[in-house]
Structures are given as structure tokens and as C-alpha cells.
Write a protein that binds this DNA or RNA. Structure first.
Lengths: 145, 145
DNA sequence: ATTTACTATACTAAATTAGTATACATTTTT
DNA sequence: AAAAATGTATACTAATTTAGTATAGTAAAT
């Protein structure tokens, strides 16, 4: 019932990039040391984020990674869906064929409802929210981001 | 991000016992065949449920297991907490020492909030609700349970 | 006594997750 | 054009967790 390190690392990477929005592309080596994520593992995670259109990269010397979207438009729900192999609390929610008892299962709807509630919450929290809530003020609309 | 089989099996076992409330103690062998759970694995799960005071047992011939509480007072949240080793979405929520960066982590509060929302939902669904919602009628107060 | 049931713990196998290793491709600067 | 710095892709391995089995009992009703 816990999130994978890829999801957690991915989120931290996006926060790091968001905090350095005005400083051009950030090198893998820099993110790696700041976030204490092994370089090769970090590169895998960055590739996933790139494919999803959340991050873009610049090649060559002075190259690196930067956000492809506004931090206010990147939501935790999207990140979790991207990295968690199974996004439902139980497999049968989206794949009833995985359980021969799914048809008359009394709990399945309940697991589905709980999953929904969780993602509704996660879909309501953006990277910008995380940054602005530091210090407990909600400044989600802040122009500087 | 998925629930363990113990949680899912545990819930199904409780539903089975709730559906047979008036029929005395139910044998392990019977639950095992109905729910397609290996006997020895089932016994482990039943023991956990017993320790938690949700199920009680009767020994000897004609013995078996039965609910120790009203189905309306057994909530999914309790079952999930009982069987999931880590009940938070991320370990640092309840154990900040597990991450050296927890103190100034911008996401930690968000993971905590999401966890809370999930359990609030699960704590609002009882075994009786599951049984009564079969057929989409909400008869949660039904006296026969 | 015997049968039928529950209890406890150690162990093993399967699956998943986390992280490494190898090899290669691209782009800017000199 | 070459070199240096960076990103890309995939295969593999190690660690952890989860799921399930095996063994050896104990308790109670008939």
C-alpha cells in the first residue's frame, strides 16, 4: 500500500526543477547530488517524465533538464499514475477478469470508491501548490511560478 | 500501491462470516472452499482477525469461526490497517526518521493528506454496508444484520 | 480416547522493486 | 572534425516483500 521510490523520486525531481525554473537546464549530476538519487536510476525516471511531456531536455555541454509545463499544471495524480504499475488499490477494479469472483464481489465497488477518492485528492495538488505551501501559506496562484 | 492479498482475503472472510451470522460457527474448511483460500493461509489470516477482536472461535467438533462484532461496526479502514504492514502511502509520513530529507520535504504533507482522505473513506464503509449495497440499495440499518 | 478443530512458527517460492552495467547517440565548443 | 559533456535505451542483478507451505503441536467435545 505504499508508493514506489520512482513515484517519490519523480515528485522530488519535479520540485527541484520547479524551484530552479529561471536557471536554465539542470544537469543530471546536479539533481543526483541534491536529491541523493543514483545517476543511472535518475536518468530512467527522467526519461519517463520526458515521455509524459512533463520534462524536456537540452543536449550537449550546458545541457540538462527543465520543466515542459507550468508547475501549476503538474498534478500529483498524474505523477503517481505514471510511475505506479497498478494504480488501483486492487487489480480487479480496472481488470475484473483478474478475479474469478469479481462479478458477485461485494467489496469491489468499495475498493473502487476508495481509489477514486484518493486520486481526486492527488489530482487537486500541483507542484506549484507544494512549493507555495511551504510555510503553510496557500499561495497557489502566485505569479512568480 | 495495491492492497495485499491478506487484506483482500480478510475482507472476504468477514463478509462470508457476516452472511452466515445465524448459522453458528463456520469451519475453516468451509471458508477455504467458498473463498478459494488455502487452508493454512486462511488460518493465519483468521488468527490476525481473532487477535484484533473482530472474529472469535469455538474449538472442538462443530467448532469454527464467527464474528465477534456487529458487521455494522467492522470498517474497511480497520481491516486495511490490520493487514498492511505500512499503512501510509509513504513511510516518512509516520516515521520521519526514515528519510533524511523529511524535515524540509515539500511533498510530505501532501502524501499525508492523501493518506488521510483514503482512510477517512475506508473508515466510513462497514461490512454491513458492503452486504447491503448488493443490488445498489442502501439498507445499512437493516435489523437482520 | 479419538476425532475434529484451532494455534504457532519456521521455511520456501514467486513476484516485485530498486538499482547497476553496458553500450550507444546527440550536440556544442574548440 | 574531434572532443567533451550530456542524454537514451535496454538488459541484468540484487534486495525486499508477498504469498503460500510445512511441521509440530494444543484444546475441546463426543
Amino acid at each position: 500500500m505504499k508508493l514506489s521510490t520512482k513515484t517519490r523520486y519523480g515528485t522530488r525531481i519535479l520540485i527541484e526543477l520547479a524551484l530552479q525554473l529561471n536557471q536554465g537546464a539542470i544537469q543530471v549530476s546536479k539533481i543526483s547530488s541534491n536529491q541523493k538519487i543514483p545517476v543511472k536510476y535518475l536518468e530512467q525516471i527522467l526519461r519517463t517524465l520526458k515521455k509524459a511531456g512533463i520534462v524536456k531536455s537540452v543536449r550537449g555541454p550546458k545541457g540538462g533538464h527543465l520543466l515542459a509545463k507550468d508547475p501549476g499544471e503538474i498534478y500529483l495524480g498524474q505523477i503517481v499514475r505514471l510511475f505506479e504499475g497498478q494504480t488501483d488499490l486492487v487489480a480487479c477494479v480496472s481488470s475484473p477478469e483478474k478475479c474469478e469472483m469479481a462479478a458477485d464481489c461485494l467489496v469491489r465497488d468499495a475498493w473502487h470508491d476508495a481509489t477514486s477518492v484518493l486520486y481526486e485528492k492527488l489530482d487537486g495538488i500541483s507542484i506549484a501548490d507544494l512549493i507555495n505551501n511551504n510555510g503553510s501559506n496557500n499561495l497557489a496562484g502566485c505569479a512568480s511560478l
